[in-house]
Amino acid sequence: MARIEILKTYKLYIGGQFPRTESGRYYTLLDKKNKVIADICLGSRKDFRNAVVAARAAFGAWSGRTAYNRAQILYRIAEMLETRKAQFIVELIQQGSTKINAEKEVALAVDRLVYYAGWCDKFQQIFSSVNPVASSHFNFSVPEPTGVVAVVAPQDSSLIGLVSIIAPIIAGGNVCIALASEKMPLCSITFAEVLATSDLAAGVVNILTGKTSELISHMSSHMDVNAVVYAGKDQKEILLIKENATLNVKRVFVYQNDWNKTESQNPYFIFDAQEIKTTWHPIESIGVGGAKY
């Protein structure tokens, strides 16, 4: 007799834990043949709120880590993803991808993580400056993470879109709450399992599943969220996010990239969720060529 397969329960990923939605609600994901793949948590505004609390709590430590350490953790995520490729390929196929495309997508996701792992301790050098002010001061500008970023992942991608958006955000020292593709949520939660085994501290990345239409207004209006990244083309949703963002002057970034292309990876994505901080300090001028007392 064939062995009865153990089916996976897909849950949310909040603060390093895998809770079910507090709302107890779910939706059923079907494959092309209308066969049930899994029940998916229908995340609520309260789940989102909990995720923001977890993210905010993680922000100080994550942004305070050395860039080298962040680089190693992103690389570790790539390692974990590489070793679990098969599972993602299966899930992608379950969600409608061909085997070839699924293999390609997973490989690309691994490579993208490696790409951004490399940027962790370099983008600062590209985007910072020493400013030659016309007074006796040392003045320099460096990028610093914006803070808590809410991400609406692209609908038409289960893995590569999510990874392409999250990687530059956390590479830059931010923390995030990502809402997975409503149509293709499987890989997002499995990716959370990768994250959970990758030395990434709890709360740095939080992943919710659920209805975009239900959650985006909360994601864009929450006063402790500093930026929103929206990947998609729905003009009504974009308008809603942008209008809500004004409540606390959130930064809003709308991405409409084809994430399968290599042009869709570059350090300017990191730069989006960065603030430039400029520091001044006097330079004493006693000594050779300077003032004497």
Partner: peptide, 8 residues
């Protein structure tokens, strides 16, 4: 004492 501040 900060020299630059004094000069300012």
């Amino acid at each position: 004492i900060d020299q630059v501040g004094v000069e300012e």
